[in-house]
């Protein structure tokens, strides 16, 4: 290790320390009755208006996801005109398709988050909330299944039953070498991003436990996520 690397490491550690201090001071500022009351009020607002939020999620996320999927289909259907124009249509179709799946994924996660954060079985419209949550989850799952089946119909090399647990394995096996390379690159980049984010979450949950007494459970969960990420990566690196 040369001097420059050591200096860089010390510098980054110093920056990390400064960010930690700023974060701690910021969280300590939040640990005041006024702010705590505001947070409780925000939480209550979400619980009281959860029905509106569920409907809002459908309008703001699910419908755009469906629109992007339809747009992707329209572009994919134009591909067989000529090779030169096919690339442009394929790129446009792929962009819309990926955007649709991204929005749909966000929709599903926000639904779960909302359900978890606003769960209150004592409320009068509890069954309606449950119904809306289930409805949204089913809608998101159906869109994903329909989209995968469409891609498979368009390119019959691609195998795998979307409702099966073996789907990812079968799908990956049926991809060609360029598609596999792309999947591996995306997977590796996603792993690196999520590993760094997990580390960030561990630091935040630790500092917030020290300053706001948020408890040890968030620390446990964020550490478990990082532990699973690292061990599963190393497990597969041993296997391959």
């Amino acid at each position: 290790m040369n001097r420059k690397t050591i200096f860089k490491m010390v510098f980054l550690m110093g920056i990390g320390g400064v960010i930690g201090i700023i974060l701690s001071l910021g969280l300590l500022k939040l640990h005041q009755p006024n702010y705590i009351r505001s947070f409780v009020q925000i939480g209550d607002f979400f619980v009281r208006n959860s029905l509106a939020f569920y409907i809002g999620l459908i309008l703001c996320l699910f419908l755009p996801a469906v629109y992007q999927y339809v747009k992707a289909k329209r572009n994919y259907n134009q591909i067989n005109i000529s090779d030169d124009r096919a690339d442009a249509y394929e790129k446009a179709g792929e962009d819309s398709f990926n955007l649709s799946m991204l929005i749909n994924g966000v929709f599903l996660i926000l639904n779960m988050m909302l359900f978890g954060m606003t769960f209150d079985k004592t409320r009068g419209d509890f069954l309606l909330v449950m119904f809306l949550f289930m409805f949204n989850v089913i809608c998101a799952s159906v869109l994903e299944i329909v989209a995968i089946r469409y891609i498979q119909k368009m390119d019959n090399r691609l195998k795998g039953e979307p409702t099966s647990l073996r789907f990812h394995k079968d799908f990956l096996e049926s991809c060609d070498e360029a598609e596999k390379l792309r999947i591996y690159k995306c997977g590796y980049n996603a792993f690196q991003v999520s590993k760094n984010v997990s580390l960030g979450f561990i630091v935040i949950t630790m500092i917030s436990n020290i300053t706001l007494e948020t408890g040890t459970f968030p620390i446990f969960i964020s550490c478990m996520i990082m532990l699973i990420q690292v061990t599963s990566y190393n497990y597969y690196s041993f296997r391959h």
Binding site: N80, S82, A86, E90, D176, E177, A178, E179
Partner: peptide, 27 residues
Amino acid sequence: NQAELGQLVGVSRQTISLIERGDYNPS
């Protein structure tokens, strides 16, 4: 066309296009 060549060698049209453009080195 690209799709027909892709079928003959068992890859997608997109992969043939990537090779033609020099964006992917085939195995």
